[in-house]
Amino acid sequence: MHAAITRPLARGDRAQRRWFDGTSSDRALARLVKPSRTLRPVERVEIYNRMYWFRLLDSLAQDFPALRAHLGEQRFWDLAERYLAAHPSRSFTLRNLGRRLPRFLRAHPELVHPDGPAAVDLARFEWAQVVAFDGLERPPLEPTALAAADPATVRIGLQPYVTLLAVRHPVDDFVIRLKQEERLRSAASNATQETLEPQRNHEPLAPCPVLDLAVHRVANQLYYKRLAPEAALLLRRLRAGHSLADACSVAFRASRIDPELQSQLVRDWFSTWTRLGWLCAA
C-alpha cells in the first residue's frame, strides 16, 4: 500500500495505470482495497497518491520560492518532479526534502538551461535558509572559557546553523527584491495569498564577482550578511578546525589590506560575530 501511495504520478498527475509488474494497477489494487460506491480501488488509492505528491511538491516550492520565481512556473514544476523522482522523501520530516537540490541542479544543468549557475546559487542560498531556520545551535562561546587559552593554539567553532556561501550571482539582492515585490503586491491587492503566484522574474540573474555570504539567524529571524573575502576565509578555516592564529594568518595571506588595519578588522569581526552568536566551542 505504501508503494502505491508514494509512487510518482503519471501524466496528467494521475496514478500510474500499470502496477509494478506491468499488470493493471486496477486489478492489483483490487486485492488490497475494496471499491466504494462510486470509486474503483485505483481511484480510491489515487486520492492519497496525489495528496502525497502534491504535498511534496508544495513543500519543495515553499522552501525554494526564489528559485521558483527565477525559473518560472513550468520549469520549476518540471524540475521539482524530476528531482523528487530522483530523490524521493526518505526522511520522517519534509525539512530534508530539498537538501540534494543544489547538487541535483549541478548534475542536470540541462533542466534549467540557460540559468544553471544562477539556479544552483539560488538553491544553495535557499537551502542555507532552511539550515538557518532550524539548524542545531550549540551553547555560545563563553569568553571566560578562553581566559587561560593560548592565543597561538586556541580553536573556536562556528554554529552549525550558520552557512557560509561563495556565490557568483547576487542572490541576496534578488531574494530581497522579490520579497519587496511580494509585499507591494500584497499591499496593493485584497486577493488572498492563495491566488498570488510568485511573480515570474524573467530578468536574468547576471553573474558577479565571487560574493561571500553568511546565512544565519538572530532571535529566530533569518538574516544574511555579506562578508569580506578575508573574513569568509577566516570563518571557513575556523570551521575546518584550524587554530585561531592559523585561521587569521591564512585569511590575510593573499590580502591587500594594510597590515596595520588587519588587527582592527579582526577585532571588529570577532566582536560582531560574538554578538551575533555565531561562535561556539570547537
Binding site: 585561531l244 594568518s249 570577532f270 566582536s271 560574538t274
Partner: peptide, 15 residues
Amino acid sequence: KTLLACAALSGLYAG
C-alpha cells in the same frame, strides 16, 4: 599571527 589571534580574542570579549 599571535597578534591577530589576540585581536580576535579581544574582539570576542568586546562582543
